[in-house]
């Protein structure tokens, strides 16, 4: 409650970015970020679930007693994920088939139960919703940067298959380096995901260091708020 809205926002997007700082949700992040469209799809689904679960957990935070707190959170998250999965199957059928198992696996994204436990169960509704949104967008942005760069390096396109998400009109959005781009297989394979993520984390740390130097002090309260659960 002492937190301001601005801090919630910057924490979620940057300082406590779940993908770059907390390293939560690694499994779906590394697995589906081989194209930008996949990354957007999973990012949107995760954000939606985060906002809904944070909101619900915040609403019932005084009702649920500590000993059944976690099972209730899991129930809420699992219900929302299943609902989102059905909706994606109905409205983004092709994308749903590509993302496959990783949609139901959003349930196991520790970032979600982590935010429910660490934030939403202690804060008011408005704040919790904003936190869910900020964390979700922060996570999605990392997915998108990773997805776009792996797609570009690996197969020489950005935004291939955009029509799966935005309809036939979006076919033209695809950028391509040309058909004679040989493609670098490593970027598409799992090791490429780890290297890409490592590079992004390094970049973030460099930027943080620069900013701290300029401010003449240590990085501000980064990582103070540790999320619950193991990375997974």
């Amino acid at each position: 409650m002492s937190q301001t809205y601005t801090k919630t926002l910057t924490d979620g997007l940057w300082n406590n970015n779940q993908a770059l700082v907390a390293l939560l949700g690694l499994c779906p992040m590394l697995a589906v970020t081989n194209t930008l469209v996949n990354a957007i799809g999973l990012g949107m689904a995760t954000t939606l679930v985060l906002v809904m679960s944070n909101g619900t957990v915040s609403l019932i935070r005084n009702l649920v007693r500590p000993e059944i707190r976690l099972p209730v959170f899991v129930l809420i998250i699992a219900s929302f994920v299943t609902a989102v999965e059905l909706m994606m199957n109905a409205w983004f059928h092709e994308l749903y088939k590509i993302l496959g198992i990783f949609i139901p696996l959003i349930v196991t994204n520790c970032a979600i139960i982590g935010r429910a436990e660490a934030f939403a169960s202690r804060n008011r509704l408005g704040h919790s919703l904003l936190d869910g949104l900020a964390i979700g967008i922060g996570f999605s942005l990392v997915l998108m940067v990773l997805g776009a760069s792996r797609e570009l390096i690996g197969q020489g396109t950005v935004f291939a298959d955009a029509h799966l998400m935005f309809g036939e009109a979006a076919r033209g959005l695809t950028l391509s380096l040309g058909d004679d781009y040989p493609g670098i297989l490593l970027a598409i394979l799992p090791p490429g995901a780890f290297m890409g993520l490592g590079t992004l984390i390094a970049l973030k740390n460099i930027i943080d260091d620069r900013r701290a130097e300029r401010a003449g002090q240590a990085p501000a309260d980064e990582g103070l708020e540790q999320a619950v659960g193991n990375p997974g």
């Binding site: 059944i68 129930l75 809420i76 219900s79 299943t82 609902a83 059905l86 909706m87 199957n89």
Partner: peptide, 24 residues
């Protein structure tokens, strides 16, 4: 309380299923 949330959750899923089954 836990049972209640179970019922609420299943209801949500059941309603979404009903709403999307035909489209799927």
């Amino acid at each position: 309380l836990l049972g209640l949330f179970g019922i609420i959750g299943s209801t949500l899923v059941a309603l979404t299923y009903q709403g999307t089954a035909e489209r799927i």
